[in-house]
Design a protein around this nucleic acid. Sequence first.
DNA 1: TATGAATGAGCATTCATTCAT
DNA 2: TATGAATGAATGCTCATTCAT
Lengths: 197, 197, 197, 197
Amino acid sequence: MMTTARAQDKRERIIRAAQDCFEAEGFHGASMARIAATADVSAGLIYRYFASKEAIIEAIVQRQLEAIQAHVDCGPRDATSLAQRLTAEYGEPVGYNPRRGNPKLGLELSAESTRNPAIGAVVRRFDTEIRRHITQWLAAPVADGGRAMPPTKARERALMLQIVIEGLMVREAREPDLDRALLGRTLARLIPEVLDA
Amino acid sequence: MMTTARAQDKRERIIRAAQDCFEAEGFHGASMARIAATADVSAGLIYRYFASKEAIIEAIVQRQLEAIQAHVDCGPRDATSLAQRLTAEYGEPVGYNPRRGNPKLGLELSAESTRNPAIGAVVRRFDTEIRRHITQWLAAPVADGGRAMPPTKARERALMLQIVIEGLMVREAREPDLDRALLGRTLARLIPEVLDA
Amino acid sequence: MMTTARAQDKRERIIRAAQDCFEAEGFHGASMARIAATADVSAGLIYRYFASKEAIIEAIVQRQLEAIQAHVDCGPRDATSLAQRLTAEYGEPVGYNPRRGNPKLGLELSAESTRNPAIGAVVRRFDTEIRRHITQWLAAPVADGGRAMPPTKARERALMLQIVIEGLMVREAREPDLDRALLGRTLARLIPEVLDA
Amino acid sequence: MMTTARAQDKRERIIRAAQDCFEAEGFHGASMARIAATADVSAGLIYRYFASKEAIIEAIVQRQLEAIQAHVDCGPRDATSLAQRLTAEYGEPVGYNPRRGNPKLGLELSAESTRNPAIGAVVRRFDTEIRRHITQWLAAPVADGGRAMPPTKARERALMLQIVIEGLMVREAREPDLDRALLGRTLARLIPEVLDA
DNA sequence: TATGAATGAGCATTCATTCAT
DNA sequence: TATGAATGAATGCTCATTCAT
């Protein structure tokens, strides 16, 4: 049921409102009442689209992970442009940008994954999957857009990349005013070392 | 007031209980009742030692940051041993270990710092301070145990290190079963690139 | 918001329940749980209609003062009938009677006004206002229903009246079984002396 | 037990502290902890001198009533000086003055007497007693310092006096900044009418 | 479909009272 | 006698969820 355009639209409104609220107040800090008000919808209506607050959180997590997935899938494939993109994104207002993982939500999601088994499982699967994905890219022949690394090295570098990107997420959340020039230079050095060395 | 050994001991019991609960359920998920039960103390008693739940959170944050500070201060100073230490620590049971930042709490604390101004300020000050500290070390003459980097480079590398360590924290929380051999090799490559390249 | 008849009705139910509870147990002695039970409403619901217990207290105080105001405004204007009315009202069951100030609440409100600044201000304004009102009446020409007193005298008599009525309130609360015949004779002498002498 | 001078002194300290706290915060608003701190005594010690908070309240009420009793007993016996004394006392700092009823406590006590049967009984007995006392004075021959009123009139006037004095108490609590000149003139007229007319 | 009134369990916190020291 | 640590019930209040309309 509920596959009309109208319904999809409302669901979308709720998700975005929830994302805004969760970003601003955390999963536990945000109340259903506030999410409803933000979505300009009655509190009761939310339960027609989501079974519980928990279900909204799961949907948001799913979406956040998909955004990152998409980021990786369609992103540029050379070290310089990756570094530039990460730098450019750092510190810019995020709002509702499905193309990009939101750092506050990333933190919230990571924390939640350590207590909520359902979310933990989703996150773990995602993390494994995406590392495999990056590993394959790094190991692929240059002719196929890859970097022709031997498998062992490719695995290491994929993990490195993951660690760096997540470290960047933490920094972004904790120090939003960080000097961007410094960050740009830093990433310009770090990323190539991860991808090319 | 209240500086007897007994009082200090009880305060410590409460802090540890809070740390356990916060780690397991998050700052907001953990109730004072549960903290009290974990500390084997009545709910009311906690308020003789802490003004509020918020005050406990602040104490825990302070402690976590101090643990990391100590880690940096007295830690080994060459790339190989740093990589080894980080690898060794990864995934080992943390419990109440004042020598080491707890990854779940680190996540919780990072998330909280984006909404709670008091904690945000503490964290920001800490982050700036510790980066300055690392930068000084990297820029210091080799004779003084430093790495003789030019200032600009030292700043970049300090930031890199911070990013890598925080990325490691996220990974540790999200994927506690990660293959430690892989992690060891990865850090053995990454850390020297950050510190020596 | 919430101006439907149903909502107004519920708000009224809560106010009356609160009035009963406050009268029986005092502002601080009455718990929200008991007010809710008395109003036959869940504890949480009260907070849809009032922001806090304090807000209920303020509403009750407001109402009590308005009741007295109305009493003065539309009351009879000669000494005999005022004395009779005061006597008649003394000791009769009050319950929820918007036409009349409730003595227990009056005491509670007076006591509260000495500690709660918000209520203190309301009460002070009310007291000044009503004395001015009575003064004007006493000073007004007989043709206008007044008693043609010179201003200085009018001010004194207004204050006297206030003192007597409040003394009556205290007596009513403290000695509800007081001999009404005695009280009737007493007021029949005292009031004219205040208003006519 | 506990009849040493030291014990009496401590009991006195506690009573005075309680009086101050009750005056400032009301019977329910004042906590035992604050009373203990004000008396510079440990919380536990209070329970060696009083069985419960309730017992302290009763002691305070008793004392307040005795103070008023003394006021009446040894007070001046002509209308002018009574009016002057009441005027003079109005608005002056009260502190711990056993010679005088404290208006805030008077209000608190009156309110409490409507809910607490023990206190209600004490207050009622006191009120009846004191009115009888005043009545006897008013009915006594002039030669004995009385005013030689016929019994019925004496009863009325005694009640009047009680009402006026209690009204004054309410006014004092509710409007501590009241113009004292106005009050003086007012009482100078009202009291003689009560006592002499 | 949509509302928002209503519920009730749960929360952080306070406080009169007790009791080991 | 005196302390103040400790208790635990009670408080005001919030919030995810339900349901009559």
